[in-house]
Simulated scan of single mutants.
Amino acid sequence: MRNKKSAATLIRLLEQARYEVLPTAATEDKVLEHLPRDRVVTVTASPSKGLAATLDLAERLTGHGYVTVPHLAARMVTGRSELEEIADRLVGKGISRVFVPGGDAEPAGDYPDALALLQDLRDLGSPFSHVGITGYPESHPTIHDDLTVQSMWDKRHYATHIVSNLTFDPALVRDWIRRLRNRGVTMPLLLGLPGPVERAKLLGMATRIGVGESTKFLAKNKGLFARLAAPGGFTGESFLEKCAPALGEDGALVEGLHVFTFNQIGETEAWRTDLLARLRRT
């Protein structure tokens, strides 16, 4: 049974949840149909679609009244001239927040990683008030664990917050947060969480983006795997409850949730509002 302190932590995080969406033809209509204007919406960058799809959707959603956060994948930007053009374009549309991952693509130009782009953003006068970077609670397919923590330390002067990658293991979240804080990385953190999504899509994404320990964790926890396979998919409620004690600790600085919707936007908002209503009755 959850206690009042954990319930209060979960309410705070759910109230500060933002949604990650994919820039497809149907995304704009889904957001308009299902999300109130107080939701923050982040728009991913796809190597197959190019940054134009990300920027276009972010601008349209901003025009509808949403706070939007386009992903500026470093390896998809050719260099400082293009970065300056992007920054001027977004600021001109009233966009003040960006998320800067390295990205999955081969480098298109001068930026082999997120840090290089972040340094140029600083040189361009720090045009964005909120700049997010990626955190990896688990092993990344191509980056050693020690390097991911070092990378966050290196980026601390250029970013305002960390967005954690997906994980399904609460123990890993708790340990990772402690490692960050012990290392002196004090930026606020948004906890990455999958919304209610079909099992095949969720596990496929997990394998691709690097949550190898979680796939092992799922294999050892047949009950959780069964819940992932059930209608409605993975909601994350039990995961959040197990994380809550660590997320509410002094010094954790976990400000909210970054929900990977995989474009299950209506289902994700229905889950969030239902869980909030039940927690408020606790």
Rank of each mutant, 00 (worst) to 15 (best):
M1I: 01
M1L: 10
I11P: 04
R12K: 14
E15L: 14
E15M: 07
V21A: 01
V21L: 02
V21D: 00
L22Y: 01
D29C: 01
K30R: 08
H34K: 04
H34N: 12
P36F: 13
P36S: 02
P36I: 02
R39V: 13
S48Q: 15
L51Q: 08
L61E: 05
V67C: 08
T68L: 01
H71G: 10
R80S: 12
A87W: 02
D88M: 13
R89A: 09
P107R: 12
A108N: 05
A108I: 01
A108R: 10
Y111D: 09
P112K: 13
Q119T: 15
D120V: 13
L121S: 05
G125L: 07
H130Y: 06
H130L: 15
P137N: 10
T142Y: 01
H144G: 04
D154W: 05
K155S: 03
K155I: 11
S164L: 10
T167S: 05
D169V: 02
A171P: 05
V173F: 11
R174D: 11
D175K: 04
R183V: 03
R183W: 10
L190W: 14
L190I: 09
E198N: 11
K201L: 04
G210C: 13
E213V: 15
L218P: 10
N221A: 03
G223E: 06
G232E: 06
G232K: 04
G233K: 03
E241M: 12
K242F: 01
A252T: 04
L253F: 02
L257F: 09
H258R: 03
E269M: 02
A270N: 09
A270Y: 07
W271G: 08
T273I: 04
D274V: 03
L279G: 00
